[in-house]
Amino acid sequence: MSKRKRPAPGFKARVALEALKGQETAARLARRFGVHLTVIHH
């Protein structure tokens, strides 16, 4: 059984939309959403 937690539906879309707005740095978005920085860059 995997120990990785599954994101809630729409989570990836919400993070992507925030990244596309360009109002915050990728590092700040990663911290705010509690994900690794590479998730924001890919």
Rank of each mutant, 00 (worst) to 15 (best):
residue 14 R to V: 05
residue 30 A to N: 06
residue 25 T to Q: 00
residue 17 L to D: 14
residue 12 K to V: 14
residue 5 K to E: 11
residue 15 V to M: 04
residue 30 A to P: 05
residue 12 K to E: 15
residue 21 K to D: 02
residue 15 V to T: 10
residue 2 S to N: 14
residue 4 R to G: 11
residue 3 K to S: 13
residue 1 M to D: 13
residue 39 V to W: 08
residue 25 T to D: 02
residue 26 A to K: 02
residue 39 V to N: 03
residue 41 H to A: 08
residue 28 R to Y: 03
residue 6 R to M: 08
residue 4 R to S: 13
residue 37 L to M: 13
residue 26 A to E: 08
residue 32 R to S: 02
residue 38 T to F: 11
residue 9 P to D: 06
residue 10 G to Q: 10
residue 2 S to E: 12
residue 4 R to I: 09
residue 11 F to W: 10
residue 13 A to G: 12
residue 6 R to F: 08
residue 32 R to E: 07
residue 36 H to T: 12
residue 2 S to K: 13
residue 15 V to L: 12
residue 23 Q to D: 14
residue 18 E to Y: 01
residue 39 V to R: 00
residue 20 L to K: 12
residue 12 K to L: 14
residue 12 K to D: 15
residue 30 A to T: 06
residue 4 R to E: 14
residue 15 V to Y: 04
residue 2 S to W: 05
residue 31 R to Y: 07
residue 30 A to Q: 07
residue 40 I to C: 02
residue 17 L to Y: 01
residue 7 P to M: 05
residue 18 E to Q: 11
residue 42 H to T: 10
residue 8 A to L: 10
residue 28 R to L: 07
residue 32 R to P: 01
residue 29 L to A: 01
residue 38 T to S: 15
residue 3 K to Q: 10
residue 3 K to Y: 07
residue 13 A to Y: 10
residue 2 S to M: 05
residue 28 R to V: 09
residue 24 E to K: 13
residue 21 K to Y: 02
residue 28 R to G: 00
residue 17 L to R: 15
residue 32 R to G: 04
residue 10 G to P: 00
residue 13 A to V: 09
residue 16 A to N: 13
residue 34 G to S: 00
residue 13 A to E: 15
residue 10 G to K: 08
